Amino acid sequence: MKSAPHFTMRQLSAFVTAAELGNFTQVARRLNLTASAISNQIAELEGLLGFQLFERTTRKVALTPEGREFLPAALAIRRQLEAAANIASDIRNRAVGIVRVAAPLTVAAEILPRVIADFVRHRPAVQVRILDTGVEWLSDRVANGEADMALGPDRIASPDVMVETLYPSAWVAWCAPDHPMAAHRHLAWADALQWPLVAAGRDHEHSVLPRLPDNIAATVKSAQIVDNVTTALGLAAAGMGFTCSPAYLAGLARRMGLVQCELTNPTIMRAMTLYTPLGRRPSSWAAALATHIRETHLGPASGIDD
């Protein structure tokens, strides 16, 4: 009986990524390798399989009929290898006391350090590692085992992830002290939008615009559209317009010299959320940290000025 070919994770990742991107240079950039290394790995895989996976040209690569047929199996094998690696990582981490928490950059910088410092003060053997993660990937990193839990804004989660609302936080406006908005403690959105808005693109599109009435959303004048709320706050501090964020980032905004204005009509809420896995046993340290987050550090506070 002929033995099965011995694939490596690198070969399968190179093949699957090349099938997605269609260009070895882009694959190399994503996998932090050289284009020649990617080409060699795919050539090795083709040698093991005994058939060609790609038609190659100087500009792009395209799957052969055999490559298209093999792709679903390669994806399944890669998923199984990743799952095995994550299970092994869980076992090691339970043994040495490592807890991994995924969080978006602002939460990782503004909220988690205080939570972690308090948690490990009486648990010196525990290591809590923060995984900087985009908001849209928080649930996925918990579901696939990369993180023991995630802390961040509410988003639709995978069915194998439990979502717990810790506390609500309103979207508020931030501006420089000499901005005309600084004279107001409260403003309706329709009045606030007379001034240019510095928008944190993806969050603004997903969390703010859909909750504004169409006639108000249509009046938005964007001074800048950036990827990260920290950048938006910095531009607002430089007088480039006002920006908005959940009020739980008040500490960061005030350290940048910004002034808060509550936004009403409508009041748009955002929930600080804890994501934990369903159907996967957490380590005792991960369970303890989750309890610590629920009960100790993150009480019901909006961050809005009284």
Results as ranks from 00 to 15, higher is better:
Leu48Ala: 10
Ala73Cys: 01
Arg123Gln: 11
Ala76Val: 06
Asn40Ser: 09
Leu71Glu: 12
Ala19Thr: 06
Leu63Arg: 07
Ile116Ala: 01
Phe70Lys: 04
Ala19Glu: 03
Thr57Arg: 09
Ala108Gln: 00
Gln41Arg: 08
Leu48Pro: 08
Lys60Met: 06
Val96Tyr: 02
Leu75Ile: 13
Gly22Glu: 07
Ile38Cys: 07
Gln41Thr: 00
Ala117Cys: 07
Ile38Glu: 05
Val120Leu: 05
Val120Ile: 13
Phe24Pro: 00
Leu105Glu: 12
Arg56Glu: 12
Gly97Trp: 06
Asn86Met: 14
Ala76Thr: 13
Ala83Ser: 11
Ile42Thr: 14
His122Glu: 14
Val27His: 02
Leu21Ile: 08
Leu81Ser: 10
Arg121Ala: 14
Arg94Gly: 15
Ala14Phe: 02
Gly22Trp: 02
Ser36Asn: 12
Asn23Phe: 01
Ser89Asp: 08
Thr34Phe: 00
Gln80Asn: 12
Glu44Leu: 08
Val61Glu: 05
Leu75Val: 13
Ala103Glu: 04
Gln52Asn: 10
Arg121Tyr: 05
Leu71Thr: 04
Ile111His: 09
Asn32Ser: 15
Leu63Tyr: 06
Ile87Lys: 13
Asp118Ala: 14
Ala84Gln: 11
Thr106Met: 15
Val115Leu: 13
Val107Gly: 01
Ala103Arg: 01
Ile111Asp: 01
Phe70Trp: 15
Ala76Lys: 11
Arg29Pro: 00
Lys60His: 04
Asn86Ala: 15
Asp90Arg: 11
Gln26Ile: 00
Glu46Gly: 02
Val96Glu: 09
Asn32Trp: 08
Gly97Pro: 07
Glu66Lys: 12
Thr57Trp: 04
Ala103Gln: 04
Ile38Asp: 09
Leu112Gln: 08
Leu71Asn: 07
Arg29Glu: 15
Ile87Trp: 03
Glu66Pro: 03
Gly50Val: 00
Gly67Val: 04
Ala35Val: 02
Glu66Thr: 06
Gly47Cys: 03
Arg114Ile: 05
Asp90His: 03
Glu82Tyr: 03
Thr106Arg: 03
Glu69Leu: 08
Arg56Trp: 04
Ala95Arg: 15
Ile91Met: 14
Gln26Ala: 12
Arg100Asn: 03
Val101Asn: 04
Pro65Cys: 04
Ile77Lys: 10
Val16Arg: 02
Gln26Cys: 01
Leu53Trp: 09
Arg59Gln: 11
Ile42Asp: 09
Ala102Ile: 03
Leu48His: 15
Asn23Ala: 15
Leu75Ala: 03
Ala73Leu: 14
Ser89Tyr: 05
Arg123His: 10
Thr58Lys: 01
Thr17Pro: 10
Asn40Val: 07
Val101Trp: 06
Glu82Phe: 05
Ala83Thr: 08
Thr57Cys: 03
Asn32Gln: 14
Arg29Gln: 15
Gly22Arg: 01
Ala83His: 15
